[in-house]
Design a protein around this nucleic acid. Structure first.
Lengths: 237, 237
DNA sequence: ACAAAAGTGTTCGTAGTACACCCATGG
DNA sequence: CCATGGGTGTACTACGAACACTTTTGT
């Protein structure tokens, strides 16, 4: 390569977006997969993805694609890595910008788009995926942990009202560990970001657990002073 | 967009790599910039970058480009974000995969490649850059902090032998804060990753400060139990 | 009344902070 | 011999981990 190299000689690439869509059904952390609609590998399980158009940024494209495939708008989306190995797509040279998405699984149920065969799989036992999508899922999980350790993004996975035990089981699943319920609840409440509701959820116990809502007013202001929930926030990446 | 959409209709993009090269001269954290060698914006300051070739991954391309521009190999490189706004390059639709690089500024001096006009600028006062490169630098700084808070990557910026006061001033500059010297040294030493040398550096004081080396044997094993050096590892991203 | 889940209290150990103090040595 | 930066000692505090204990209520 010389100083004088010009744009016109440069190889061009197809640019795709792939999304790892996380959901939580109250018991287990899951990801949403789809039966691929085009060759190659048509009919096999894959991540939700598509191509970036001429006039779009990758963020815009990811939102558009998720809306098309799930019917949902305003989903939490975060770019986490770009995959560019020459071998990753056997048909043609494609670079994929990968995102993870967090959605409330109940909202998804309401507006499901049945044009596409999508299905939720537990994060621990999903089928083999096409191309390098398995690798993408693994990295997405790590990035989710990394980010969740000091931010409130996991609330995106829950309904408006949720109980502390439910929140705890979500955290336990995301970090693949278990927490002391007493310490967990105190730590959560100490952030002052949860507003106690009057109703209880009695579906899981006789006593019932109070519902809480995330305080969205303070939410934005307090992103800086959130919890250090994870025993050891190191070894995550 | 329909299920039947085929690959061949898809827009193709030029794919570039841009590197934010960090260095530390013993006093201040700096970045390495270059006078752009091709139109548009020829002659203006820009990040070190280039285009990804047909048969390369972005990682390979980034290494190649850094070698070409600085003469250095084996530099610490980490992909951190992909920029894809349609407006980012005025000439043609280009997606840029951005990396941050960490190099020992002394090694750079030895093998400098003078074909290119490169220059170090303090991270606090660098010139205006082309395209969205300023934005890239800002994000790179944040990612560097984020990662450095729980990993040993900052040692990539130092020579083999370094003193604790030097290490401290690097940390202070990266995190834009100050630490108690006593606590800093104890915390560092407690990781058991530093090996004390016999010589002292007397350039900064009469008493002199011992040199240390990073224990590269334990380095790999201990990436999990590293320091929590930063007062509040939150509010970083 | 008892099982089972929710939630509270209490103890203990450790890690961070602040700051006073000692050390070595070149001028 | 003293100013300067390097380095140690120590007391205080806060927070996390663990776990025993109390509360609630449907069966």
């Amino acid at each position: 390569m010389t100083k004088e190299k010009r744009y016109q000689k440069i190889t061009k690439f197809t640019v795709a977006v792939d999304c790892i869509v996380f959901g939580f059904d109250g018991t287990r952390l899951k990801i949403l997969l789809i039966k691929r609609g085009l060759e190659p590998e048509k009919g096999k399980w894959s991540l939700m993805g598509g191509f970036v158009n001429e006039d779009e940024s990758a963020d815009i494209a990811a939102n558009r694609i998720l809306k098309t495939l799930t019917g949902l708008e305003g989903i939490y989306l975060e770019q986490f890595h770009t995959f560019s190995s020459p071998e990753r797509d056997p048909v043609q040279r494609t670079v994929s910008i990968a995102y993870f998405a967090l959605i409330d699984i109940n909202k998804y149920k309401e507006s499901i788009n049945t044009d596409f065969e999508a299905e939720w799989f537990p994060i621990k036992e999903f089928p083999h995926l096409i191309f390098d999508h398995n690798e993408m899922v693994l990295l997405a999980q790590k990035k989710l942990q990394y980010k969740a350790a000091s931010h409130t993004i996991l609330f995106e996975l829950l309904p408006d009202k949720f109980t502390l035990p439910l929140l705890q089981s979500l955290f336990e699943d995301v970090f693949n560990t278990s927490f002391d319920k007493g310490n967990f609840s105190r730590k959560m409440l100490s952030t002052k970001l949860l507003i106690k509701q009057k109703e209880k959820d009695k579906s899981n116990s006789k006593k019932g657990a109070y519902y809480y809502k995330l305080d969205k007013k303070h939410y934005e202001d307090n992103l800086h002073k959130i919890l250090k929930l994870i025993p050891n926030p190191n070894n995550l990446l």
